[in-house]
Amino acid sequence: MRSGFAIFDHAQFRHYAKQITDMSVEARERRQPWILLSAPLGAVTLLLLVPLVFIVIYSFWLRSAVGPDIAGFHPDNWQRALTDPFYRYILFNTLKIAAITTFFCALLGYPAAYFITRSSGNKLILLLLLMLPFWISYIIRTMSWINILGSSGALNTLLLSTGVISSPIQMLYNEATVILGLVHFLLPFMVLNIYVSLDGIDTNLEDAATSLGATRWQSFLQVTLPLSLPGLAAGGLLCFVLGAGTYITPLILGGPRDAMFANLVFEAIITQLNWPMGSALSLLLLLVLGALVAVYNRFLGMSQLTKGLG
């Protein structure tokens, strides 16, 4: 009697063995990215998604007058965050300040990036100088404006000593100084993004435009600027999102009325100990900025952003 194993001849055995080997290679190849991604995915899950879930849950709790928060599903915080004109006003003001900051960053950042791209030889030094402010604490950089613009700061002292003014000018603690502080903080992000974009443009294109009769200004406007727009947009998005999420700058350089949405989140959580409302407000800001990023991604894609960050 022949055993069941003997029904396969050698050729069939090799065929099945190859299939199994091929499958295992395919399966391994399929698994490999997940194995490599497991650590970052784990980190993102633990450090971002899980806390986010906690914040979502918290946003539906209620603060009690004294003592612990009241757990449950209460839409009250969301209702207030979405319908209260106070939160709407601060949110629009935040978006306005972020937009003005982004505009000034673009205005100042483009010429700087263009200069760095076109400079020959000292490009690395210029890039290093651009990165230099990142080595100093953001808070210290922001506070430095007090020593420059304060009543007894460098600028007032200079103007007084040269006789231009007879008494110090009040320059600090208003919305303009908040925007100034934000531009100071965010400008390098804009310059880097535009630089990456400009650096990737083939200079022969400008030469070609010039050889076809375009002036240097025309070749810039019709060739260089359109090609660098993705970098400008990426820098704009970064500046806008980072600017809209800040609370330190208005705290240091703002007056009594000056506040951005993140200040409300800080106050709700830290000063008022109203974690549920603070959670709802922080999620609202996240949703608004997330929507902006989604719109950007729909029309320009995220690849330009990662180039700039890289």
């Binding site: 004294v66 106070f86 009594p256 009325r257 506040a259 409300l264 106050e267 000063t271 008022q272 109203n274």
Partner: peptide, 19 residues
Amino acid sequence: WNGNEAEWSETFARVQRGF
């Protein structure tokens, strides 16, 4: 003061910003 903390701290945040 603690009995009024919830209401007054929130109201102050609004008054501070021009409301």
